[in-house]
Structures are given as structure tokens and as C-alpha cells.
Computed example of a mutant assay.
Amino acid sequence: MTTELTQDPRPIFARALDQAEKQVAAVSPAELGNRTPCADYDVRELLGHVVSVLHKLVRVGNGDDARDVPDVIDGIADDGWASAFAQARAEVERVWADDEKLDRMVELPWATLPGRTALDAYTHEFTVHSWDLAHATRRLAGLDPDLGSRALDAFAKFAPPEARGEEGPFGPVVPVPDDADVYTRLAAYAGRRP
């Protein structure tokens, strides 16, 4: 029987990148200053962060140190974010096309993991950041509920509320109604205020 840890994470990762890329491409220059639910980031900074994450994934995929890449890339023209994301994504897909990299240990800024586990974790990060961008630009329709559900399940395992401190990317869980949609529950679980 195939488990989540032995499956190839790249198809689901690609779906998360498809969703994020659509959100990035939809952002207009007038929306770059909008606040996001992601603490301390406006839309421009969040775009710089997601492009940065792609660059970090290229670095670790090549066996290099991802800490050399800033958490937020700047200097991208207002109308250049879609192109910057697409170019960085193409490089990530090129680097991670090698099946052997899935089982090689990679050193991330926050952990050392097998490549497949790292891609799985970043799948969920891109899913949450897609919601962040969609919320900030009022484009919530069309987010993939399966990706949201997968991310919610994953966050419950690797970011349980009792393991969170004052520092880090996840605030306390925000209460939402039991019948809230999966992205509202995901955002609340990640500490956003949907």
C-alpha cells in the first residue's frame, strides 16, 4: 500500500503552484499595497515571499543553502510579478524533475527533511498563501477545496496549536463556525482572521 510519505508529491505540488500562479497573475498594480491576513505582509511583500520560497526550493534542490535567499524578494516591477513567479516555478520544476532528489535529505531554514516531505510541506504553504492573496484581493471564488483539505490535515500534524509559541508563522487558532468552508477553517487554523 502506498502512503503519503512514499507517494510522489510533485503532482499535488504542481496543483498548489497552479493555484498560486493564478492568484499572482490576477494581482493588479493597484492591489499591491493591500493588507493581507499574513502578519506584516502587504500584497507586494507576500508576492515577494512566494517568489522567494520558489528560489529557496531551487537552492535546496541543488544542495545549496536556502538561507542565502531573503524571505521576501523585492525589486520586481509592479507588473512583473506573474513573470517572476512563472520563471522561478519553471526553475523549481526543472531542478525537482530528478526522482532521486525526492529521497535525498534537504536542509531547509526550519528543518532537515527528505525532499518529498519538503515539497509536501511547501504544497501546503502555497495553498495557504493562495488564500492570503485571494482574501487580500477579494478573489476567493475558485480555490481548490481538495488542496485546502489536504493543507488543513497537514497543518494539524506539523503545526498543532500546543506546539506554537510567540514566534513563528502561525498564530493561535482562531475560532470559526463548525460549518465554515475548508479555506476559512484552514486560515483560522493557521492563525489568520478570516
Rank of each mutant, 00 (worst) to 15 (best):
E4C: 06
L17K: 00
Y122Q: 01
F126D: 00
A84V: 05
E31P: 02
N34M: 10
A121Q: 05
V106D: 07
A154V: 04
G33T: 15
L57T: 08
F170G: 10
L147C: 04
E93N: 06
L143M: 12
A141G: 14
Y122N: 01
L102T: 04
D99T: 13
P114E: 13
V53C: 03
V95W: 11
P29S: 07
L57R: 03
D65W: 10
D179E: 14
P194N: 02
P145Q: 04
D103R: 15
S28P: 01
D153E: 12
T117A: 13
A88Y: 04
R138F: 06
L108E: 08
G48H: 06
F170P: 07
S83Q: 15
A134L: 04
P169I: 12
E45I: 01
R59S: 15
P37E: 11
A14I: 07
E21H: 12
V173E: 15
I76A: 02
D71V: 04
L54F: 08
V128S: 02
E91C: 01
D68C: 08
L186D: 10
R15W: 07
L140D: 06
V106L: 12
A188Y: 05
S52N: 09
K101W: 08
V27F: 08
L140E: 14
S130K: 00
A25Q: 14
R192K: 11
W81R: 03
A84H: 03
A97L: 06
A84G: 08
D42N: 13
L54N: 13
P145D: 12
M1P: 10
H129F: 09
D179G: 05
P11D: 04
L5F: 15
V72E: 14
G191C: 10
D79P: 10
G142E: 12
M1V: 09
V69R: 03
D71T: 09
D68P: 00
A187F: 05
G80Q: 04
A188T: 02
G33S: 15
D8I: 10
S130V: 09
K56C: 09
P11Y: 07
A88N: 08
L113N: 09
G75A: 08
A14N: 13
A66V: 08
E91G: 01
Y189P: 02
T36E: 03
V43M: 07
D179A: 13
S83C: 10
R10I: 11
A66M: 09
A88T: 10
A88I: 03
A190S: 14
A111E: 10
P177E: 13
V24T: 03
A14D: 15
A30F: 11
T137E: 05
D71G: 12
T36H: 03
K101A: 13
Q87G: 11
D65H: 08
P172I: 05
P177N: 10
L186R: 01
A20T: 10
R67Q: 11
L108T: 13
Q87Y: 07
P145G: 04
D42H: 06
E91W: 01
A141T: 11
T137I: 10
D181E: 14
T127V: 12
T2P: 11
V174P: 04
S52V: 07
D103I: 05
